Amino acid sequence: MSTAELVAPQLPYLRRYARALTGSQAAGDAYVAATLEALINDPSPLSEAASPRLALFRVFTVIWNSLAVNERRETIERDLPAEARLGEITPLPRQAFLLSSLEGFAEEEVADILGRDVTAVRALVDDAGRELAADIATQIMIIEDEPLIAMDLESLVESLGHQVTGIARTRGEAVALADEKRPGLILADIQLADGSSGLDAVNDLLETFQVPVIFITAYPERFLTGERPEPAFLIAKPFQPANVSAVISQALFFQQTSHRRAAAAGS
Rank of each mutant, 00 (worst) to 15 (best):
G166E: 03
G166F: 11
L199D: 03
V157T: 14
G161F: 03
G161P: 11
N203M: 07
A188S: 15
P147T: 03
G166S: 14
I142N: 02
E173I: 09
P212F: 01
A176I: 15
L177A: 15
V202C: 13
G195C: 11
G195T: 05
A174E: 01
T170E: 05
S196W: 05
T217K: 09
A176Q: 14
R169L: 08
F209E: 11
G198L: 12
T208N: 12
A178D: 10
T208A: 10
V164L: 06
L153N: 06
L148N: 03
D179S: 15
P220C: 10
Q210H: 10
F223W: 14
V164N: 03
L199G: 05
L224C: 10
F209Y: 12
I216E: 00
D152K: 07
E158A: 09
R169H: 12
I167S: 03
F223L: 12
L224A: 12
L156W: 09
T165V: 15
D179Y: 04
L148S: 04
A168C: 08
L160W: 13
S159W: 02
Q210L: 10
S196K: 07
I214R: 01
A168H: 05
A188C: 13
K181D: 14
Q210M: 11
Q163S: 14
R169E: 13
Y219H: 13
A188T: 09
S197D: 09
S155D: 11
H162Q: 04
T217P: 04
Q163L: 14
L205A: 07
Y219M: 12
Q210R: 12
L205V: 09
F209N: 05
E146S: 06
I214T: 03
R169T: 11
A178C: 15
E221C: 06
P183V: 00
L224Q: 15
V164D: 01
L187V: 09
E144G: 02
R182Y: 07
L153G: 02
V157C: 00
D204I: 04
L148P: 00
L160Y: 10
A176P: 04
G184W: 00
G166L: 14
I214K: 04
S197I: 06
D200N: 08
A168Y: 02
E144A: 01
E173Q: 14
L224G: 07
Q163M: 10
V213P: 08
D189Q: 04
L206V: 09
L206Y: 02
A201W: 00
I214Y: 01
K181H: 13
V211D: 00
K181P: 01
R169I: 00
G195V: 06
E144W: 00
A168E: 07
Y219N: 15
M151S: 09
V175Y: 10
T165I: 15
D179R: 15
G172Q: 08
P220E: 11
E146W: 00
I143N: 06
T217C: 12
T208I: 08
L156I: 07
G161V: 06
I143Y: 03
D189A: 10
V157L: 00
L187C: 04
Q191P: 02
I149W: 10
D189G: 10
R182A: 15
I142V: 15
D179C: 13
